[in-house]
Design a protein around this nucleic acid. Structure first.
Lengths: 138, 138
DNA sequence: TATCTGTTATATTATATATATAACAGATAT
DNA sequence: ATATCTGTTATATATATAATATAACAGATA
């Protein structure tokens, strides 16, 4: 049977099974990227854990782990039986805990970049390019 | 016996043994941060794998793994018997492979940040603050 | 000669990741 | 009502990764 959500999600996902990054993390990142790029809009539904797992060819529990993380962080809502829907992004997702984690990650990234010869202008330019790239879909 | 390198490195390191981030990665990141902040200058020596391991209270092989990574990436040089020294940072460390990895990491970071309400100005400001923070030591 | 260096090898333990089955309870469609 | 779908939970297993523990080697040094 034809499945709209599965078609949508297939366009967004590009998992690398050889990567050292766990599948459930890649899945999380790519769904978040889909939301950031408005390929996934508020109210839209995602395939069920079983359907998604079957589409991608991975285990149900791997998808379940991703959904659980996305739910905890406010990206999606899981209505029992109505399925999984994308939330409207909300400023309440901008917690101190998250900001602290972001800064920590940025510090590691920037320290290495600086050592290797990426200066603040290069770095800022690259960041802005990525912001533009994500916004293209709007 | 008093050990200068050990004193230095103790000032720089702050490992979290409860973290989900592997120790050898934390160690790598923090040494790179030390180099970026010029707390570790070109030509300076790092403690031997055994000394460092003993100082921190971890296994020799964990330190060895970190040193091997840092060596591969050009941050340090290992002279058999002369010890481990910090390299002068070099533009040859700015490889395409690294830039690709940096952009990938930034894209994930920025996608989530954008969803949570960090706009490009916030993000740029935070990045520049970190660049300034790292440069304080110069 | 004794001691330190990085390096390599092997083994063991603990944890994380992914999978496989199974079951439960609520909701929906036929 | 019965079958089917939902998220969720539980249990077990296989594999990979991370960290540790010992040991040994070869080169350099005191």
């Amino acid at each position: 049977m034809y499945n709209v959500e599965s078609e949508m999600i297939r366009m967004i996902l590009n998992l690398d099974f050889e990567s050292e990054i766990p599948i459930y993390q890649q899945l999380r990142s790519q769904i978040i990227e889909g939301i950031a790029m408005k390929k996934l809009k508020p109210g839209e539904t995602l395939p069920s854990v079983r359907q998604m797992a079957s589409d991608i060819g991975i285990n149900m529990h791997t998808v379940n782990k991703t959904y659980t993380l996305l739910k905890q962080d406010g990206f999606i809502t899981v209505h029992r039986q109505k399925g999984v829907t994308v939330n409207k992004m909300n400023k309440s997702m901008l917690t101190d805990e998250y900001l602290s984690r972001l800064k920590q990650n940025l510090r590691i990234l920037i320290a290495e970049a600086a050592c290797r010869g990426v200066n603040k202008d290069n770095f800022t330019e690259t960041s802005l390019e990525i912001f533009s790239y994500l916004k293209k879909g709007e």
